[in-house]
Design a protein around this nucleic acid. Structure first.
Length: 432
RNA sequence: UCCGCGUUAGCUCAAUGGUAGAGCAUGCGGCUGUUAACCGCAGGGCUGUAGGUUCGAGUCCUACACGCGGAGCCA
């Protein structure tokens, strides 16, 4: 047991003399009294340094502490409604661990360019700490959800010899004597192999897209969860996605109230994320667009603006299913009732956050899949192992991918994905 | 790749074509309950780069660089 107390546990020590270690978040002074706001990653604590209660040296030191200096403070814990967090520390001693140099991120406003240049320090700020804690809670909720339902975590390779979907551009690398290799853009094909081995699996890891996307909804490196289940059809897949999103959102609402408040997130929209979610076919969604006076030609894929317009019809995430096969990936199964449609589903988050889930029932027929690979001009030799899954006990199976940062961004109410991950990787930035 | 906007103090921003300014941060001083504390004083500038127009350019024009936002693509 360490010899200091975490700020979030101070309520258990009212009246006691304790030691707290942390960093100077801010300070104020008024003659013979100084207010040090300490942060330690678990919370914020107002430390009172009265002249007379401490030695002359400690009083002077308290006035000279630069922002973000690290200190160890000793004092008595008091309940104090005027202080942040409801408790404060009546200091008897302040020990300097390290005097900070002039800290670049001041308590005033900063521009995004400056903040992102100082991302390694920016993550110490109150809102960023709240976001990163919510991100962690979301990750845990995701893992709990699948673990509790008998899924096995199945880690796909990150280095792959070929494009999974063939549509996006990939980060390329030389792989010893074997020639070009690529950073994965999806673990899905491997998850399918896993599902036929283990029944229910999910992958959870980083994926990479070298597309020159330059929007608030894109990162070049992002985390994705991809469940894949044997014997599930598209409807089962949608049921799973619905239950999953409801669980994640409601868990965060329940456990992360303080952080959501720090972010000033209006949670009324999140509170409505309760099953069942509306389900509309692509064709119906096109009708919604037309009805609202937007020009749209059946057969095109939805853009971000189109998604938002459709989602505004509903008060919770909406599932759009059965897209034109033309705009979807080669591995998606065609709708037996209309072969021009793919058994695909996207989930669109409310409030303009766009697509957070993309999934489908997979093509399980060998000949159909061979035909698609040819149509898409994909190199069949790279897919032989994938085709084997259709040669040896093929079954209907389905899955989806959830973008972690988009989910974090939506739940936290962020206006850009770059704040949803500790160190974002974007087209014109790979530092810090 | 395309379209739009921007670049002035460490940071956030002002400044009719006519002497370069404020707040925060920093330093010094004041204040016994502050809440992005407050009050006083001080230091701090090749106005992104290179050209051009003009008696005179932070301001107008051209090019370039960098950044931000959006489109396409997608999670």
């Amino acid at each position: 047991m360490a010899n200091f107390v975490e700020i979030k546990r101070l309520s258990e020590h009212v009246g006691e003399e304790v030691t707290v270690k942390g960093w100077i978040y801010n300070k104020r002074s008024s003659g013979k009294i100084k207010f040090l706001i300490l942060r330690d990653g678990t919370g914020y604590l107002q430390c009172i340094v009265f002249k007379g209660n401490v030695s002359e040296e400690v009083f002077e030191l308290s006035g000279n502490l630069a922002q973000e200096s690290s200190v160890s403070v000793k004092g008595k814990v008091k309940a104090e409604p005027r202080a942040v967090g409801g408790y404060e520390l009546d200091c008897t001693d302040v020990e300097l661990i390290h005097q900070s140099q002039e800290y670049p991120i001041t308590p005033k406003e900063h521009g995004i360019e400056f903040l992102i240049d100082h991302r390694h320090l920016w993550i110490r700020s109150k809102k960023q700490v709240a976001i990163l804690k919510i991100r962690h809670r979301i990750i845990k909720a995701i893992r709990d959800f699948f673990d509790d339902r008998g899924f096995t975590l199945f880690d796909p390779p990150i280095i792959t010899p070929n494009a999974v979907e063939g549509t996006s551009t990939l980060f390329e690398t030389e792989y010893f004597d074997l020639g070009k290799a690529y950073l994965t853009q999806s673990g899905q094909l491997y998850a399918e192999a896993g599902a036929l081995a283990l029944g229910k699996v999910y992958t959870f890891g980083p994926t990479f897209r070298a597309e020159k996307s330059k929007t608030r909804r894109h990162l070049t490196e992002f985390w994705m969860v991809e469940p894949e289940v044997a014997f599930y059809d598209l409807n089962d897949d949608m049921d799973l996605a619905e239950e999953f999103i409801e669980y994640v959102v409601q868990t965060v609402l329940k456990d992360m109230k303080v952080e959501l408040e720090i972010l000033e997130r209006d949670t009324t929209s999140l509170e409505k994320v309760i099953r069942p979610f509306p389900r509309v076919s692509y064709t119906d969604a096109v009708e919604i667009l037309k009805k609202k006076g937007h020009e749209f030609e059946w057969g095109n894929d939805f853009g971000g603006a189109d998604e938002t317009i459709v989602s505004e019809e509903f008060d919770r995430p909406v599932l759009i299913h059965r897209y034109p096969a033309e705009v979807k990936a080669f591995y998606m199964k065609r709708d037996p009732e209309d072969s021009s449609l793919a058994l695909a589903v996207d989930m669109i988050a409310p409030e303009g956050y766009g697509e957070i889930i993309g999934g489908s029932q997979r093509e399980d027929d060998l000949d159909e899949l061979l035909k698609r690979i040819k149509e898409h001009n994909l190199p069949q030799e790279f897919f032989e192992w994938y085709l084997d899954l259709r040669r040896y006990g093929s079954v209907p199976h389905s899955g989806f991918g959830l973008g972690l940062e988009r989910t974090v961004s939506w739940i936290c109410g962020l206006d850009h994905l770059r704040e949803a991950i500790p160190f974002p990787r974007m087209i014109y930035r790979n530092t810090p």
